[in-house]
Computed example of a mutant assay.
Amino acid sequence: MEDLLLGQAKKLVQAMDKTVDDNLPQHIADIVKFHSKGAAIAALASAWVPGAGGIAATAICAGFIWTMYGKIGAEIDLPISKNILKSLASGVVTNIASGIVGVIALSTAFSIFPGLGNIGASVIMGGTSYALTLASGYVYLKIMTQLFSKGIDPTTLSEQELKNIAKTVASDSDVKDVIKEAKEEFRSKNEQGEFKYSQKL
């Protein structure tokens, strides 16, 4: 997972001709990982809310993605307006999340039952939020790389144009691989206790 993320960050930095800063790709990858972990921890906690956990976790996840896009933009000196960032985040999430709507519904159903149901819901939503945020970061890096490679300034595009690009990029087969790897990574880290504190909230 780290290799895919860092590789895409390097491509973006090269496309923007910012290769003077050798640390920039790692900083960008770290922003994505930090927000993915934050979304997972928040989702693990919110999924304990009976009957509404999945919906709450999804809203929290969207907030982490929007903030992540803003941080990456600041890191690469790309001043995209908040409205366009929100719109782009919405476009990316909508296209990625279409394949995991059933997971959110399942999590909401689980959270209605106390005890084991809440545990199941929190783990499902934690993994889903982690994967969705990580994949959204990856898609954002791919979108920006494509634009800069073609000499297109993202700030000159309309919200709809950015959403259309997001739809195309989010359907790439490697994005599905990123989601799959991210879910496996979450499972492994969760078993190792990396998210243990959050489950006690």
Score class of each variant (00 low, 15 high):
residue 1 M to R: 08
residue 3 D to L: 09
residue 4 L to K: 04
residue 6 L to F: 08
residue 18 K to Q: 11
residue 19 T to G: 08
residue 20 V to D: 15
residue 21 D to T: 10
residue 22 D to N: 05
residue 26 Q to R: 12
residue 27 H to K: 15
residue 31 I to D: 11
residue 31 I to C: 11
residue 32 V to I: 15
residue 36 S to V: 08
residue 37 K to D: 14
residue 38 G to S: 15
residue 39 A to F: 04
residue 39 A to V: 09
residue 40 A to R: 15
residue 42 A to W: 04
residue 43 A to W: 05
residue 43 A to S: 14
residue 45 A to L: 01
residue 45 A to P: 06
residue 46 S to Q: 15
residue 46 S to H: 12
residue 51 G to F: 08
residue 51 G to Y: 07
residue 56 A to Y: 08
residue 57 A to E: 02
residue 59 A to T: 13
residue 60 I to M: 14
residue 61 C to P: 00
residue 61 C to R: 12
residue 64 F to T: 01
residue 65 I to W: 09
residue 65 I to P: 07
residue 66 W to N: 14
residue 71 K to D: 13
residue 71 K to I: 10
residue 72 I to T: 01
residue 72 I to H: 06
residue 73 G to I: 12
residue 74 A to T: 10
residue 74 A to P: 00
residue 74 A to K: 14
residue 76 I to G: 00
residue 77 D to Y: 12
residue 79 P to Q: 10
residue 80 I to E: 14
residue 80 I to A: 13
residue 82 K to L: 11
residue 82 K to E: 12
residue 82 K to R: 11
residue 88 L to Q: 03
residue 91 G to W: 04
residue 92 V to T: 03
residue 95 N to D: 01
residue 96 I to H: 05
residue 97 A to D: 09
residue 97 A to R: 04
residue 99 G to K: 09
residue 100 I to Q: 09
residue 101 V to K: 07
residue 102 G to H: 04
residue 102 G to V: 04
residue 103 V to H: 02
residue 105 A to N: 04
residue 105 A to D: 03
residue 106 L to F: 15
residue 106 L to W: 10
residue 108 T to L: 11
residue 108 T to S: 13
residue 110 F to M: 12
residue 112 I to G: 00
residue 112 I to C: 04
residue 113 F to V: 15
residue 115 G to C: 09
residue 119 I to L: 15
residue 122 S to T: 13
residue 123 V to Y: 08
residue 125 M to Y: 02
residue 126 G to S: 07
residue 126 G to D: 04
residue 127 G to D: 09
residue 128 T to S: 06
residue 129 S to R: 00
residue 131 A to E: 06
residue 133 T to W: 07
residue 134 L to W: 03
residue 135 A to F: 07
residue 135 A to M: 01
residue 136 S to M: 03
residue 138 Y to S: 03
residue 139 V to G: 05
residue 145 T to D: 07
residue 146 Q to F: 01
residue 146 Q to Y: 03
residue 149 S to R: 13
residue 153 D to M: 11
residue 157 L to Q: 12
residue 158 S to W: 14
residue 160 Q to F: 06
residue 161 E to Q: 15
residue 163 K to N: 11
residue 164 N to F: 06
residue 167 K to M: 08
residue 167 K to S: 03
residue 168 T to S: 14
residue 168 T to P: 09
residue 169 V to A: 03
residue 170 A to H: 01
residue 170 A to G: 01
residue 170 A to F: 02
residue 171 S to H: 13
residue 171 S to F: 03
residue 171 S to K: 12
residue 172 D to R: 08
residue 178 V to H: 02
residue 180 K to T: 13
residue 180 K to H: 06
residue 182 A to I: 05
residue 184 E to I: 03
residue 185 E to L: 07
residue 186 F to A: 04
residue 187 R to E: 15
residue 189 K to P: 04
residue 190 N to P: 05
residue 191 E to A: 10
residue 193 G to K: 00
residue 193 G to F: 02
residue 194 E to S: 10
residue 194 E to H: 04
residue 195 F to W: 13
residue 199 Q to G: 02
residue 200 K to V: 10
residue 201 L to Y: 05
residue 201 L to V: 10
